[in-house]
Nucleic acid binder design. Structure first.
Lengths: 112, 112
DNA sequence: AAGCGTTATTTCCTAACAAATATAACGCTG
DNA sequence: CAGCGTTATATTTGTTAGGAAATAACGCTT
């Protein structure tokens, strides 16, 4: 019997979810591609879904997380801010810490 | 901006989920009511859904977690085993520990 | 002014999920 | 042996989430 403890964490702002694993993945993809549509495609996610996620993130904070621009040089694009990058780092650090904690607890289940 | 870090944990056995918050709630309700149908009703859950959850739990372990009996004295019933009770306790203890850990990490987000 | 690559938004459709309903089986009780 | 309260399971219906596609708007470039 190979037990595993898994977890999902997310951050809520004013009672609605604002940052979770999916959103973090998307933010990182935007940072790599420079565009929301390309990021969505790289994650095999519909543009609509990606846009909704980003819209919800942007509405949740006062400091901007990503800056969208429409029209212009290359048709527009999306850029991750320093604040957004810091959020991602903090999230992943906390998430890893959570996983580490749960690993230490696993024997409590196995030993029953 | 009032941030909160939330989490869900669950235990997997052989790559499929075996115990999570919903199942724990259901197991506790069964322990209180002595019947799957009453437990489902008390949680405002359909009998079918409750049955599927319990069936999946029972198929995931060698030691029985709940014992179902059909027909007989009061038409049948469901009973939580000592092993099941121990599982619930361990789960809730670990879950609380996870929440406590996440609370200590919250300032990393707030201070960005 | 036309063309482009993007963001932004609506509408429509479908597929997965959930709920409701129906039916059967079971084993004690009287 | 009929009645009961349960577990067990299939079928049908309803609902909601999500994808697909179409359209518009935007602002640089040429």
């Amino acid at each position: 019997m190979s037990f595993k403890i898994r977890s999902r964490i997310w951050i809520e702002a004013d009672e609605h979810v604002f940052l979770g694993e999916g959103r973090v993945r998307l933010l990182k993809a935007i940072d790599e591609t420079g565009s929301l549509s390309k990021a969505a495609k790289s994650l095999e996610m519909s543009y609509k879904k990606a846009w909704k996620l980003i819209d919800s993130v942007n509405k949740s904070t006062k400091k901007p997380v990503i800056i969208m621009s429409v029209g212009g040089k290359n048709g527009g694009g999306a850029e991750l801010t320093d604040y957004g990058r810091a959020l991602i780092n903090a999230f992943e650090e906390i998430n890893q810490g959570c996983w580490d904690y749960l690993d230490t607890q696993l024997k409590k289940i196995k030993d029953l």
